[in-house]
Nucleic acid binder design. Structure first.
Length: 196
DNA sequence: GAGTACCG
DNA sequence: GGAT
């Protein structure tokens, strides 16, 4: 596995997961899930929203961070438990300014890509899995490099720093119905970042 | 011409 | 590995 890639299995307790989902439900009421598009016009299979000063957005104009939801409102605040987790696992010098929420239905996936739209790659990305199990694939610095796969489950936390911050990664598939955390099933992935 | 959050 |  790439250096700088850390998995914390079961890092969030079952109680805290439920509290977190409650916070996220409030955020999604104000900033509903929407679909992003690749620059070539293909819709992503995940549905997305964000919290924090910046949200990740993409359409024909490309991948970027924006300060407002497509509905014109500012993104909701990042819930305090997530900021605390960042302080514990990443840094207390600076808080993240973006938390991307991707919802995976039973058939959603995420192709191999690199998080490439941030200003300073020295800040790690912190990723949280909630709900159904997901098959996570990690490669190297080049698209054709060998990859490894690992199953992530609800409450797992991944930190990608150092070399791993620039590594290709994606989600091959979800194992629908493996968790009862989310009322309608599926998976939520949260990624905390310093975007700008 | 580079790089790929899509597809096959 | 494309087509964009």
């Amino acid at each position: 596995m790439i250096k700088g890639f850390k998995i914390f299995k079961n890092a969030i307790s079952a109680d805290d997961r439920r509290l977190l989902v409650h916070d996220l439900r409030l955020a999604v009421e104000r900033a509903p899930l929407y679909r992003s598009y690749t620059p070539s016009g293909q819709p992503l299979s995940v549905r997305t929203t964000s919290m924090g000063r910046y949200g990740w957005y993409s359409d024909a104009a490309g991948y970027r961070y924006v300060t407002r939801h497509p509905n014109g409102t500012k993104w909701p605040a990042i819930p305090a438990p997530l900021l605390n987790l960042w302080g514990l696992l990443v840094s207390t010098d600076r808080a993240p300014d973006s938390c991307l929420l991707n919802y995976y239905s039973g058939t959603a996936k995420m192709g191999l890509h690199r998080d490439n739209d941030e200003v300073d790659f020295s800040w790690p990305v912190l990723s949280i899995s909630l709900g159904d199990d997901a098959l996570f694939r990690v490669g190297g610095m080049a698209r054709g490099d060998a990859t490894q796969s690992v199953w992530l489950s609800s409450g797992d936390v991944v930190v990608m720093g150092g070399d791993a911050r620039r590594a290709y990664h994606g989600i091959d598939r979800i194992k629908f119905g493996t968790s009862r955390l989310l009322a309608h099933g599926g998976r939520i992935n949260l990624t905390l970042r310093v975007a700008k």
